[in-house]
Design a protein around this nucleic acid. Structure first.
Lengths: 188, 188
DNA sequence: AATATGTTATGAGCTGGTGTTAGAGGAGGA
DNA sequence: TCCTCCTCTAACACCAGCTCATAACATATT
């Protein structure tokens, strides 16, 4: 096996699992531990403990933001039962690697959670949705979603969400959301 | 300062910042490094490197699964351009805390990515979707999505995704997906 | 045969610890 | 007063998982 190939495999192996010691890597790639160390040196890959530290520090306290802010968007303004606005910054993690186009369900997730936030109930669930992705959203763009209650019938709300990037509409969705009483688990 | 108080402060300090060495802790608490070690021993607190490793693995796993397996589901079987099946295990992280009902966009994300996987192209994008959440999915349930190409017109595919839990339909979605770049080589 | 390239070996030293044994210093009781 | 107990500190050997420097070896090329 050529050195070039081995170094490529080394990079890929560590990307899949950064918690491998040089010895384990040497065993996997069937070379000596020194070779692994030279390869790491050449590729600028830090040692196991430094990698572990990086992962820990990078993700420490960031998981929350990925779950709340990034996935669901940041609520900017809200007028319960009427309208609401949220913003989401599109990062690499949300996109297809190749095209850097944001995966549709992140845009959907922002719109969906905004629609749910609009309903004045302890528990609300999405029943139906009719959505259209007008143009792809790219990494780095800031998506601004605006949700509006079109009409309400009992515990059912029809909500229109329009998402824009730089003023240009990228997404439109009509959601039917049901407010569920906290006491009873009435399903949609 | 009493030992009890010191140990309480030690715990709190490490909770706030788990990346401190014994020496740094000794400096902060104005005691010797040995005292810190005895305290850690007494409190069952592991050493810095073990703590770092814990944080890294816990959050790394979360981020990774949140990005790949959990969000997009595990592809079980696929027949390109025809049908595909994926499974997703619903965890607490995917649900509303109060009701333990899985947020709709996770179910949507599974269906959407399954629809995209079906298209034999390097880049594919969702254009339209018409979806219905038939009943809420709870934490702990295993959602099985099956996607099927209904028809194809040029680079546009109409794909029906049906998601079931224990044989019961929980979600149905019709997706219109566009293939942007034809497949060149075998990708991931 | 000499040289270059890539790989492996060897040994000293580092960090951030563990585990154990030993001792210093003060508080309280007989 | 002495003695004991508790808490803290010190000292030493050892460990994993490295870095850094130096050298030996295999193979192919000139």
């Amino acid at each position: 096996m050529l050195r070039e190939d081995r170094q490529r495999i080394l990079k890929e192996t560590l990307r899949a699992n950064p918690f491998l010691t040089d010895q384990e890597l040497a065993d996997r790639l069937q070379v000596s531990i020194q070779t692994i160390r030279l390869d790491r040196l050449a590729l600028g890959i830090p040692e196991l403990r430094a990698r572990t530290r990086e992962v820990a520090k990078r993700t420490y306290g960031q998981v929350k933001s990925l779950q709340s802010k990034e996935i669901f968007g940041e609520l900017i303004d809200i007028n319960l039962e009427q309208w609401a606005v949220s913003v989401i910054d599109c990062t690499e993690a949300m996109a297809f690697e190749r095209s850097r186009v944001v995966r549709g369900h992140f845009i959907f997730a922002q719109a969906d959670s905004l629609a749910l936030a609009l309903v004045n109930a302890d528990v609300a669930l999405t029943g139906l949705a009719n959505i259209k992705f007008k143009r792809p959203v790219k990494v780095g763009e800031k998506a601004i979603a605006r949700a509006e209650v079109l009409r309400r019938k009992g515990n059912k709300y029809v909500i229109l969400v329009t998402t824009k990037v730089d003023g240009e509409a990228v997404f439109r969705g009509k959601f039917v959301v049901a407010a569920i009483e906290p006491a009873k688990g009435e399903s949609v």
